[in-house]
Amino acid sequence: MTTKLTTILIFCFTLFIALVSAAPVRRDVWDPRIITPNAETIWLTGQTYNVTWETDDAPVNITNKIGRVVLGKDGIQNQAVLASNFSITLGSIEITVPDDLEPGFDYNIVLFGDSGNSSPQFAIL
């Protein structure tokens, strides 16, 4: 009788562990607002700057915490990858503006990670 009870208890415990581990963890998509650069920003080619974004509203379970900062121009992304493989919970990342860019007032930064979001247009001279 003890063997049957032990077998039933082990089975129930194993079933409980399987159910708990199969339960999905709720993940949140997070779209942090980019603080800098902003519409008043002017960057110079070859110089180093910080891209910053808000982190005070970050959810506990972010879907993708690995970030990438991409330069866009005239609404087209992927002009250059400026930074990658960092935690988007940092709130900032240092980048260097490529030397070979055409001057313009229609650049923007796109922050990828959990969700892609874009800065306002700014100038690179």
Rank of each mutant, 00 (worst) to 15 (best):
V81D: 13
F86L: 06
L101T: 11
I8R: 09
D100V: 00
V25Y: 02
T36M: 08
M1W: 02
K73T: 06
P103Y: 03
N50M: 10
F105A: 06
A39P: 00
P59S: 02
I42R: 15
V25H: 04
L9T: 01
N117L: 09
S115Q: 06
G104C: 02
A80F: 12
T36V: 13
A18P: 00
L9Y: 12
N108F: 15
V20W: 08
F11D: 07
N78Y: 14
F13W: 12
F16D: 01
L82Y: 06
T48W: 00
N85H: 14
I124K: 10
E40W: 11
L44S: 09
T48Q: 08
S21M: 04
I109Y: 01
V25E: 03
R26A: 05
R27W: 02
R27G: 00
N85W: 05
L5M: 10
V69D: 08
F105G: 03
T36Y: 15
P37I: 12
N61F: 02
V20A: 06
D31A: 11
I35N: 10
T14F: 02
N38V: 02
D114A: 01
F122K: 05
G72V: 07
G75C: 12
L15F: 11
T36W: 13
L71R: 05
E54C: 01
F112L: 13
V70D: 15
A39D: 08
E54K: 14
L19N: 11
D74H: 10
L44I: 05
I93L: 01
T89F: 02
F112C: 10
I62R: 02
R26L: 01
N38T: 07
